[in-house]
């Protein structure tokens, strides 16, 4: 981007201000997770822990088998993300680029599905899963998560496939490529930013979903992180230390994911690769 020095400075200042605003509440969460209980509710609060403790992390792993919740969440979220990306990229491409009929009704139907309140569908879905004997299994979460995250992923990928110039599609066909080859050799690499966005949103949605996980997988060995963390609370107490410790740990995989795939979204594309 062509810009002057002042513009660049303004850009940095704006960005840093936003980043600070975003990080502060989270800083408070991290700090609290290292404070003993009596300090957590003390006033005035200490902005840096006076007494550091790892007790909340120890409780999360020792008392609540948090390791098992992490394993389950990883399996469910990774599988969901994989299936969603696979199916949604194909479907998004078809809707964006191929002469299929009834595109608008399709897109509206997808919108309706993703807007339908989960609380309303959870009871019939439970009966369905119980009938086919899927309760307390990974697929009890992976399949519904895939289905409910597909609409958004299709929408977002369709949007990016539309931005790839149509000339590329025609050129590939003249070269004798099949539709599917055109799709995965030309379009998929060019829409990496969109794939990244779809992947992150799907992963996070599967990673944080609570109600289905609570109801469909009630056995302790099948619990996921959000349900596990909710079990930290007692009827009359909210153990901020343990809840925040668990949440800090639950952020780590997402950070790793972003670090691995960051190139897909920032400066991943050589300039001019996409021509209008």
């Amino acid at each position: 981007m062509i810009q002057t020095k002042t513009q660049r400075v303004i850009g940095y200042v704006v960005l840093i201000l936003f980043l600070v605003a975003i990080i502060l509440p989270f800083y408070w969460m991290v700090v609290t997770s290292f404070k003993p209980n009596t300090d957590i509710t003390a006033y005035p609060p200490s902005l840096v822990p006076k007494h550091w403790t790892l007790i909340h992390y120890a409780t999360a792993f020792g008392h609540f088998s948090f390791g098992m919740y992490i394993r389950n969440s990883v399996i469910v979220a990774v599988s969901t993300t994989f299936f969603v990306l696979l199916f949604a990229s194909m479907a998004g491409f078809a809707i964006a680029r191929l002469p299929i009929r009834a595109k608008t009704p399709m897109l509206i139907a997808l919108l309706i599905i993703s807007v339908f309140p989960p609380i309303a569908v959870i009871t019939p879905l439970y009966m369905l899963l119980r009938t086919i004997g899927w309760l307390n299994s990974y697929q009890a979460l992976i399949v519904p998560y895939t289905a409910f995250n597909l609409p958004f992923a299709i929408w977002i990928l369709r949007n990016y496939f539309l931005q790839v110039p149509g000339a590329l599609f025609e050129a590939a066909k003249i070269d004798g490529a099949t539709v599917f080859q055109t799709f995965y050799r030309i379009f998929v690499p060019l829409t990496k930013p969109g794939l990244f966005a779809a992947a992150v949103f799907t992963f996070v949605a599967a990673w944080t979903e609570f109600f289905m996980a609570l109801v469909f997988n009630s056995a302790n060995q099948m619990r996921t992180i959000p349900v596990g963390i909710a079990l930290f609370s007692g009827q009359f107490n909210v153990p901020y230390g343990e809840i925040f410790a668990g949440s800090v740990i639950s952020i780590v995989p997402i950070v790793i994911l972003v670090v691995i795939f960051r190139k897909w979204i920032v400066s991943g594309l050589t300039s001019g690769a996409v021509k209008g």
């Binding site: 609380i119 959870i122 009871t123 439970y126 009966m127 119980r130 309760l135 109600f211 609570l214 109801v215 009630s218 056995a219 302790n220 349900v227 909710a230 079990l231 609370s233 007692g234 009827q235």
Partner: peptide
């Protein structure tokens, strides 16, 4: 006896029991 740990929030607990038992499950 297998323990199924429920959510300590009474509303959430009630919602999951209603879904499960209303959905015809034999457990809990």
């Amino acid at each position: 006896v297998q323990l199924q740990s429920q959510n300590s929030n009474t509303d959430t607990n009630k919602a999951s029991l209603t879904t499960t038992i209303g959905g015809g499950s034999a457990t809990p």
